[in-house]
Design a protein around this nucleic acid. Sequence first.
DNA 1: TTGAAAGCGGTACCAG
DNA 2: CTGGTACCGCTTTCAA
Lengths: 319, 319
Amino acid sequence: MARRAGVSRATVSYVLNNAEAVRISEPTRRRVREAAEELGYVPHAAARSLRAGHTRIVLLPTPHVPIGPLYSTFLNELQWALRRLDYTVVQYGSLGLSGDEAVRAWAELRPVAVISLGEITLTSHNVATLKRAGARAVITMGPVGVPGAHALVMDQQEVGVRAAAHLVERGRRRIGVVVPREQGLELFSAPRLAGARAVAGAEVEALPMAYTEESAAELAARWRGLGLDAVFAYNDEYAMLLMRALQDEGLRVPGEVAVIGADDLLVGRLLRPRLSTVRIEMPTGDHLASLVDHAVREPSEVTERHDLMAAEAVHREST
Amino acid sequence: MARRAGVSRATVSYVLNNAEAVRISEPTRRRVREAAEELGYVPHAAARSLRAGHTRIVLLPTPHVPIGPLYSTFLNELQWALRRLDYTVVQYGSLGLSGDEAVRAWAELRPVAVISLGEITLTSHNVATLKRAGARAVITMGPVGVPGAHALVMDQQEVGVRAAAHLVERGRRRIGVVVPREQGLELFSAPRLAGARAVAGAEVEALPMAYTEESAAELAARWRGLGLDAVFAYNDEYAMLLMRALQDEGLRVPGEVAVIGADDLLVGRLLRPRLSTVRIEMPTGDHLASLVDHAVREPSEVTERHDLMAAEAVHREST
DNA sequence: TTGAAAGCGGTACCAG
DNA sequence: CTGGTACCGCTTTCAA
């Protein structure tokens, strides 16, 4: 590239980066630009960041399973927001890697920030490794903070609390809580169950169920024997499935059993009775992105905790 | 790191990469490993790939909008499959960039493969730029191939064909086709509409509609004036929304109007009548990943075309 | 068995 | 205004 334009590598660098510090003559600039165009020359990101000593990579560990529309939308937004701030988003799947192995693999990329959603539980040693490797921000989202990391608390427990409290308010006592049989959802389902258990006046029973019609029908078939008068069904999708199965079994909703979901999906309003739900106020992707950006530029305020998630019960017709 | 263990950088490299070619004494290996552990040393991926002359990056341009559960699941699977083959997946959002700018930005990362889903339409010049930058495989997924790229044909048009043909078979003629008002879905909706238009015996009318209850109600309110006896509603989510609105308007489904969706979502079976749909046979993530892997190792067979998507109508109760 | 040194492709300093 | 050069961290050849 350099000799194609008949100049030195240094000059090429100056021209292509519009360096202010040095003055390059107009004819030279033109020659360089033309040569670059002609050769389809594109600078090499690895070489650049090697020299610079840092990258603009934000590492986002990939969830093991699809997490539902609410969360996907949030992640998608987050990616776009980071892009706009000129970060490069790297999705990194870590299935089959132990926590330490995964962290080492991440550190190889020298990300400037890591946003861990909880697929892997970070230790403070892990956080230290990442920081030594150049990470200026390590952000964990989950119920519990990690020393040395920024904690963005998104407390799923609150969802369970709101659901159970809503049912109790409406006079229900014996509450079933659906726990998905699908692997990888424990991160969400366990705190939601725990939240429901924490509500005074609720007698909670965990009900494993898979996201299939068969599993829902099987649960509905033995419903009368369970002696429950309400169910919090993990989220709207499981709730819809179970509500239908209960109705097919001849049970009246909400008469004999109240049903509430979570996520406030539009489709929940299409069933009859309309599904009651817990609306979750997710932080916007822009918001989290700017938090990340801030943490990268100002890594001083390390242990700050931000509470980001709010939840409220929405009464419709199924409770 | 090197002097921490009292050896040279070369020795460190040998030990950490388990180099077969050279024999290192066991005591030395141990010293190196211990020092690495102690310092939390992790090799620098950029330096490594700079030296190696190539990366294991697979670049995946991010869709502008969430694309629906079927597609998200596919993308998620694809990422995991690529990970298992030891590739690093980089999601790259290109909003606000022109095609050429986006391609240059991608090329900077020197990806070994690019899987373009169609957010950006690649020219053969773009493909050439990527290949010069080291891409051994450029894969496009969409209705049309690009010279020089591997084309994985996923013909959305087939979905429209199957839906309309199913309706015609069942004696319907005047068919409405819902076209989402949401930006970024044209990639899918336009071919689906075109497919429906191509079916003999179908008189097709395009019906713009947003994914909101208001928009569905508005469309349902003027339904009788449209003189249609069937509707293909883009996908199951739009179909459910519209079917409910039509029922609320007092129209009998399927008596007065047949409704069919696409994607075969589980929730479609929860409404009454159960929603007819077009089931789409997506390629598995593993399949595409191994195709990518093969293309990377054997870049010779460049212009091969693979047809990957099949679709069939599933009759339930709404048609 | 180990070390010295070259070189990957950029950037930035200093000299001319 | 432009070129030479050192250096970022790693791999790999060649010598010792």
